[in-house]
Design a protein around this nucleic acid. Structure first.
Lengths: 204, 204
DNA sequence: GTCATATTTGACACTCGGTGTCATACGCGG
DNA sequence: CCGCGTATGACACCGAGTGTCAAATATGAC
């Protein structure tokens, strides 16, 4: 247990440096665009060498979208906790409340909107973003398959359902982002997901 | 008109060099993995310099997934041609017959399956693939919005519906790819898309 | 066939993202 | 104050991708 305090300490300072880097980098991205800003510039603006930057982020992309790595497990746990009598579609909608909170958060709104614009308009970032989403989806598929009592290895429906739910999430996000963003993101997501009705799974 | 023949000629030889490069590169990828093969190795194996490689493909990724750029417009046209009385979901399924033909094509099956494995297992490629898909989706959204008579700038449903259809396509593709691949890909896609029923769009 | 012209190619130098290595500086517990 | 482990910077290096320019090659007119 004597090893705990220093580790926690290091981890804390590490987080601080990371968020400092994130802020500095985002300001530069907003000013000049993602691709026009080099890692060396970010590092210099944060008072460190390029080599040290890569000790805090595994890549330039990671600085922007790395945070989504943490989301996946949270979502899967959140799905596991949903009551069994709830429909799969409804359960997924409730799981997405996590995103709704994130999008609605008034403290982050300005900054998040700016970064979203940059991600949407930078193909490399958008690609990486979609890949993260696809990883989250995979983590949820197992839970959905279990709920439906079907085998995800031979039945495409768990993947299709989770993918469709994420498609709703992304579509709502884009529309929301291009709207005036008054009120909550929740109803927009509800609209998107309400376009679908799931047939009860049939045995095969 | 005298300018036509040479252009067609150059374009033809260009295609030939491109497909030669693709074959050579795919063989190398299958042997050693995408990332382990350098562009210089591909170029050397095809008897040209690295600089010349980049005159035929804008990037290493482009060599693998660049062909999908052409799909988008075809899909959009294909949707525009679907009869108006057909439901949106059914129309999208019919548009996907294009993919079904592609996947079923017995001449390409072996090679395509090998490349699919590589794309699935290489994050950078998978990300780029998803990004291409997302571009195709955008091209179809307008047509879907028109069919439904709703405004895609303020209503998330066109994007959600197209995205959901593509989610079915991807899920079916993954499941298909992990199956014995006997028979046609079509029924697998039907299964995935049959999990959903679309509510008729309501005015807002 | 010959010449003029346009295109293709290779060679080279360069930028940027990312990694391995090593010596040094720093913070901490004894 | 000393020893130890971690953080850092400097440097060299690799691979993807681009700009430039000169040489090679193909094309068209005559």
């Amino acid at each position: 247990m004597t090893a705990d305090p220093p580790i926690a300490m290091r981890e804390r300072t590490r987080r601080i440096v990371q968020s400092e880097l994130t802020v500095v980098a985002q300001d530069l991205f907003v000013e000049s665009g993602y691709e026009a800003v080099t890692v060396e510039q970010i590092a210099a603006a944060a008072g460190m060498s390029k080599r040290t930057f890569f000790r805090y982020f595994s890549s330039k992309e990671d600085l922007v979208i790395g945070k989504y790595d943490l989301f996946g497990d949270k979502l899967a746990e959140s799905l596991a906790v949903r009551p069994a009598e709830e429909s799969v579609w409804e359960a997924l909608r409730r799981v997405f409340d996590f995103f709704v909170e994130y999008v609605d958060d008034p403290k982050l709104r300005e900054r998040r909107a700016a970064m979203e614009r940059i991600v949407q308009s930078t193909p490399a970032l958008n690609a990486a973003y979609l890949e993260k989403m696809s990883r989250m989806q995979k983590l949820l598929e197992e839970g959905v398959a279990a709920r439906l009592g079907i085998d995800q290895r031979t039945d495409p429906r768990p993947g299709a359902i989770v993918g469709a739910a994420f498609a709703c999430l992304l579509a709502a996000q884009v529309t929301w982002h291009e709207s005036d963003q008054a009120g909550s993101f929740g109803p927009m997501l509800d609209d998107a997901m309400a376009a679908f009705h799931l047939y009860p799974p049939t045995a095969r």
